[in-house]
């Protein structure tokens, strides 16, 4: 009987060790080409993107480097929701650096999402106090239960932690300054015309909407310059009535906070019917990524007299 107890205790001890390590120390595991902690180590920056997978796939960082002299970075987490963006922003602030311009994701579909973490890397990159703040934000939205709690603090990101020695070298080859470097080919027109997309939830999740407003207010309090951008989606999605409805709610939320610093897809002259630019409804091919980034940088240069582009 005694041996059985030792065995059980050993198993539980292993669990505890991994959980403690993951929650408290994982943010210090090196991830040299992406993530919040890496950005903090970069010091002051001129341009910082903070968004979802659209930012990961749709921004070409080498081009941004040329325009901003390498003082730039892209923090992109898949499915990064407004509710999560607030603690991420606060974590960056706590790093003590200054950022000339922060670029946030105007991604209307995130407004209707249930509160959750799509990319376990978010949890990984935050320090423990920030994790707690994120958890509190999730809990306040009342969409969490015991299994969410367990997943948040125990199982999420565990796969990556355990396979870190193997997967990290792989990830190092895939990203540059947080954005994808892969020469993604465009999908065929046939695929893009027929790919189904689902905006089944059109009802705005108040927690997400409120988080957008909260982010804006925090930036104002800190005197942080920012702009929200909507990367162009393939026309089938962009013209969808439900999508447009969510987009108008997002825009109204910004305007209610007195924000006019936003760049919609239509402000950039990029042809969203050109299948060469798209891998799917929301993500660009490598060609699309470069085209959009070029146009965006030009737009930013024209708009902002205080930018450091010559």
């Amino acid at each position: 009987m005694k041996k059985a107890f030792i065995s059980i205790a050993a198993g539980l001890a292993v669990i505890a060790a991994f959980v403690i390590f993951k929650n408290i120390f994982s943010c210090y595991l090196p991830a040299k080409n992406r993530g919040i902690q890496t950005v903090i180590r970069q010091g002051d920056l001129e341009l910082l993107f903070l968004g979802s997978s659209t930012f990961r796939c749709n921004i070409d960082m080498p081009l941004v480097d040329e325009a901003y002299d390498g003082r730039d970075y892209d923090i992109a987490y898949a499915g990064n929701q407004p509710v999560a963006t607030v603690p991420e922003y606060e974590e960056l602030r706590a790093g003590g650096n200054s950022y000339g311009l922060m670029v946030f994701d105007l991604n209307p579909m995130l407004l209707s999402q249930a509160v959750k973490i799509s990319d376990a890397r978010v949890i990984w990159d935050l320090t423990f106090p920030s994790k707690l703040r994120l958890w509190k934000g999730m809990k306040d939205s009342e969409e969490t239960d015991l299994s969410t709690f367990y997943e948040f603090f125990v199982t999420s990101g565990m796969d990556d932690l355990i396979t870190y020695p193997i997967t990290e070298p792989f990830y190092l080859t895939r990203y540059y300054k947080g954005a994808k470097t892969e020469e993604t080919p465009a999908s065929s027109r046939e695929y893009l015309e027929n790919e189904s997309f689902d905006i089944s939830k059109e009802k705005v999740n108040e927690s997400q909407r409120a988080a957008v407003a909260a982010l804006v207010r925090r930036c104002r309090e800190d005197g942080q310059r920012f702009v929200f951008i909507e990367t162009p989606h393939y026309y089938r999605l962009a013209d969808d009535p439900k999508y447009r409805q969510l987009k108008s709610v997002f825009v109204k939320t910004l305007e209610d906070e007195g924000v006019d610093e936003y760049i919609l897809a239509e402000d950039i002259e990029m042809d969203n019917r050109n299948s060469e630019f798209f891998e799917d409804m929301t993500h660009f091919s490598a060609a699309g990524r470069r085209e959009y980034t070029r146009l965006l940088l030009e737009y930013l240069k024209d708009q902002s007299p205080s930018s450091s582009i010559d």
């Binding site: 065995s7 059980i8 050993a10 997978s53 579909m109 376990a120 199982t155």
Partner: peptide, 28 residues
């Protein structure tokens, strides 16, 4: 057996799926 038991406890605790995952990627 003792080692296997401890290993299974650890694996179940750390890698188990308890209920629907709230953390799955959706292409946004």
């Amino acid at each position: 057996r003792l080692f296997l038991a401890a290993a299974m406890i650890a694996a179940t605790g750390l890698l188990g799926i308890f209920g629907q995952s709230n953390f799955l990627y959706q292409a946004f």
